[in-house]
Design a protein around this nucleic acid. Sequence first.
DNA 1: GAGATTATGTCAGTACTATTGACGTAATTT
DNA 2: AAATTACGTCAATAGTACTGACATAATCTC
Lengths: 162, 162
Amino acid sequence: MSVEDGIDFAIIELFFFAYRDFTSDPDQILADYGFGRAHHRVLHFVSRRPGLTVAELLDVLKITKQSLARVLKQLIDTDHVVQLQGPRDRRQRELYPTAKGRALALALARPQSRRIHAALGDSGITERTLVERFLEAMVNPELRAQIDVGSAKMSGKSHGEH
Amino acid sequence: MSVEDGIDFAIIELFFFAYRDFTSDPDQILADYGFGRAHHRVLHFVSRRPGLTVAELLDVLKITKQSLARVLKQLIDTDHVVQLQGPRDRRQRELYPTAKGRALALALARPQSRRIHAALGDSGITERTLVERFLEAMVNPELRAQIDVGSAKMSGKSHGEH
DNA sequence: GAGATTATGTCAGTACTATTGACGTAATTT
DNA sequence: AAATTACGTCAATAGTACTGACATAATCTC
C-alpha cells in the first residue's frame, strides 16, 4: 500500500499535487494584475484580519520585513491596502483592505473555495470538520494560535473611502 | 462559520498553514546539503518512479527544462541521481536514484510521514483513505493520471553501484 | 528627562527558483 | 534525405526570499 519503509508516500505526494493545483487557480488571476503569490497571501490575511499590524503579518507569513516591503508597497500603491496609524501605539501601522482589495481577495478565494467544495463532494465527505481537523493537526502545535477558524471576519468594513 | 460570502475561508487558510509546516521539515535537512525545495521534488519523483525520463519528470513537476537543468545537474554531480540511456529510445535519459539519493529521499520523507501519522492520530481519523480521497479530489481531474497511489514503488533497486 | 527599546521603513547585496527565447546535437521517424 | 523528437545549454529576466546595516519616530523605563 505504498507504505514501504514505513513511509506514507501516498499522502506526501497527494499533498504536493493538491497544493500545486490549489494555488494554480489564483495564480492565473494574479498574473493579470502583475501580482504573484506573495501579494495573494498578504491580501488574504489583511482581508481576513483587518487592522492587523505589520509585525503580526510578518509573524503569520513567516517572512522578513524586507521581503514584505516590496509586496506591501505595491498593494498600497495600487490602492488595494491602506495603512492607518495605530490608535493605541502610533508607531504601529494597522493594515486594512480597501473595497478594491476586498474585491480582489474575494475573486482569488472564489475558485479555491469552489475547488474545496467540489473535492468534498467528489470524495463523499459530508463532514467538513474532518478535513479541517486533519489540516489543523498538520500545523505545528506552537503555531496553531495563528489560526482562528471562524473568529476572523472577512465581511468587516474596508477603508477604501475615507 | 467563516463561510461568509459563501467562501470557505477556513479550509483555504488551513491548507496554507498545513502546507507551510509540511514543507518546513525537509527544508531544514536540505539546507545542510545546499539544496532547496526543487532538489527535493526531483529526488522524490526519481525515487518514486525510478527510470522515468526527463520529459516525464518535467510533466509531473510542471516546470521548464531550463529550470530543471541546474537542479538535476547538481543532483547528478553530487551522486544522488544517475542517468542511463533509454533502452528503447537512445535519445531518452532514464533517471535513477543512487543508494545515496535513495537514502536522502527517505530522510526527507521521514519527518513528513511522521507529521501525517501524528495528524491522523490527533484528529481522530482512523480511515486514512478519507484524507487520500479528499486530496486526490483537489487535484485537477486531467492531471490525476500522474498520481499512481500504491503502484509506484520506492523500494526498487537503485543504480548506485553499477 | 535621558536612555533604551520597539515598530516600522529602507538601502544594498545575494540566493533560489522560475521564466522565455535561441541554438546545438544525436537519434528516431516519415 | 528531411522532419521531428529528446535532451542539453547559453543568455537574459523576474519573483520571492534572505542577511546585514542604518534611520526615524514613538513608547517605555529608570
